[in-house]
């Protein structure tokens, strides 16, 4: 946010290196978790484009995640295509068109109306996935086989996961970079201006509806990419991916990490994955724990964990150095 490109590149590089060497030091289960965290990270970053940078709270972002996932599932099953690159390309096209259409309807409204409308579409998609049983297998979902990455075939799941981790890492770093540049571009700054003061934005000649629409499309496309990456990782896609409670997960992740900082939502996503896994081993009442954590954060750490921790560290530093 207030970072220049050199600092961002440094963070990205350090991140990339740590994540790249991690698999050599941890078990494959944790490698899987980190991969999942990065996938959710892209999803959360895309949601935050709407929330933090455009000021639009979407309660229907799971729609795009599910869309990407089902594009993979259906393409594999119906068209017998096994290439991951094909899935991603198709997801890009489909999500671009759909987010343009849905966004066109949604961005005319703000706040509660926008939240309800996006949730409506998300649940609509859920109903469609359940209803068109013959096409989507309804609530059973579609099982996804291991695809080919850059032409490489895999004979077993373990070898696939080892390679897929790096595949995801690269795409994650790429998405993060693209989104960061976009949010710090004239367009991204104009979005933030619209967020802060849409009245003034109009009076300096910024087409607010058009820009909100593009923001929606960006969020939808990147959200769908994350869903497409999810499908081979989870090897199962089901309608619950777009149920209203899934929408809550992405909100939770971003809140956890802190929405006012670019990387916050990605960090929150990774924390979320580990939190959820730890919680699920302790109890089946995962929602209870998640709810309590959100309540605590809202009361005590409204800017999210990472930002609040940063503030606390900075505060302590200032105290120590007497400034």
């Amino acid at each position: 946010m207030g970072m220049n490109i050199k600092t961002f590149s440094l963070y990205l590089l350090v991140c990339g290196i740590i994540f790249a060497i991690a698999p050599f030091f941890i078990s494959s289960y944790y490698v899987y978790l980190i991969a999942l965290g990065m996938v959710y990270g892209i999803w959360a970053l895309s949601w935050n484009v709407l929330f933090n940078y455009t000021g639009l709270l979407s309660f229907g972002h799971a729609l795009w995640f599910a869309l990407g996932a089902y594009v993979v599932g259906l393409t594999q099953e119906r068209l017998m295509i096994m290439s991951m690159e094909c899935y991603l390309g198709l997801t890009l096209v489909v999500s671009f068109i759909l987010s343009l259409a849905v966004g066109y309807l949604c961005v005319r409204y703000t706040q509660i109306y926008f939240a309800l409308l996006t949730q409506g579409f998300s649940m609509l998609f859920y109903a469609m996935l359940v209803k068109f049983y013959s096409f989507t297998h309804g609530t059973d979902g579609i099982s996804v086989k291991v695809p080919a990455l850059l032409g490489m075939q895999f004979t077993n799941v373990e070898s696939f996961l080892r390679a897929y981790y790096y595949y995801i890492l690269l795409i994650f770093l790429l998405c993060a970079t693209i989104l960061w540049i976009m949010m710090n571009s004239p367009f991204g700054k104009s979005l933030q201006f619209i967020r802060d003061n849409s009245l003034r934005a109009r009076f300096i000649g910024i087409p607010i509806i058009k820009y909100r629409l593009w923001s929606f499309v960006i969020a939808g496309v990147f959200g769908a990419i994350s869903g497409a990456l999810f499908a081979p990782l989870n090897r199962q896609v089901c309608p619950e991916l777009t149920y209203w409670s899934s929408n809550g997960n992405v909100v939770f992740m971003t809140l956890l990490g802190g929405f006012s900082v670019f990387a916050g939502s990605a960090i929150g996503a990774i924390i979320f994955v580990f939190l959820q896994n730890i919680a699920l081993t302790l109890t089946i009442y995962w929602q209870l724990i998640a709810g309590i954590v959100i309540v605590v954060i809202v009361y005590l750490f409204p800017k999210g964990l990472t930002v609040s921790i940063k503030d606390m560290v900075v505060g302590m530093y200032k105290k120590v150095h007497g400034r």
Binding site: I5, M182, S185, P186, F187, G188, S190, I206, Y211
Partner: peptide, 11 residues
């Protein structure tokens, strides 16, 4: 007319 530029940094 440059407010729509999305792939370059504002700085």
């Amino acid at each position: 007319r440059r407010s729509g530029k999305a792939f370059s940094l504002i700085d």
